[in-house]
Design a protein around this nucleic acid. Sequence first.
DNA 1: AATAGACCCAACCGCCGCTTC
DNA 2: TGAAGCGGCGGTTGGGTCTAT
Length: 267
Amino acid sequence: MGRQPCCDKLDVKKGPWTAEEDKKLINFILINGQCCWRALPKLAGLRRCGKSCRLRWTNYLRPDLKRGLLNEHEEQLVIDLHARLGNRWSKIAANMPGRTDNEIKNHWNTHIKKKLLKMGIDPVTHEPLHKETEANITSSSSTEKPKSQFSRSASANTLDSFDNSSSTVLSENSLLANDQDQETEALFESLCEDEKLLNYLLGEDEPPLVDTLTWELPNNMSGFDNRPNGFASWEDCATWLLDCQDFGVHDFGLDSFNDVEISINDT
DNA sequence: AATAGACCCAACCGCCGCTTC
DNA sequence: TGAAGCGGCGGTTGGGTCTAT
């Protein structure tokens, strides 16, 4: 007996989600939390595969998502983490609050990859392309694996110089960029110093004890008797969340959603 | 204004690893 | 111990949008 399909293929809708479906999904998760994706579609009244519901929630509807393009220092962070972790997008995303693996992967494939190639850097190995060619001549070893050596200097510095020479967009607000560079620098220094965290990033260790497993609600939503204060009903709450998708939750000053998970799974 | 090609990203697919029985 | 079931991950694709001609 083979494995059952993840859902009833005949009765499953595919393609873009409608506002109505989003509303149903948000309503259900706000009430019941994230549990049993397989059963969720039926319980929530959705003609969708559980997998599809999970993806829709994690990549688009989650209230802690940032919207819009990655900024300069987020991009740098992706490059640095990719140099170390390779195509392990979920691990990279885990270090970038508010960003999803899908979003990072898309951004990598559409922007960063081209940028690195244009700079003469191999986006797989983060080595200069010509050097890569030489290496291939002398050695037949695979280049698929990410570098084990931390390669910030190679990728980051060259990217900086690329930005300085060619970018009109990225050079805007340079003072802020400098601050962000320093932040990024500090972040990576701390990353390198934190052996436990590094091991975790490499998938060789348990996650460090950081409180990322449960969502905490913003102060104005405390006392979440499974319903944010200020909302007369779940319907209002879901409507608000749907609005957040249009404007970006951070436009509402709810940055405290970052890194946290609504703790309604307990219900 | 029309069209073709490039670009972008949401969503799907298939595989893998973990858990349960 | 191994099969079944599930969630999660990474690669890929399809279609909408943008841009150049």
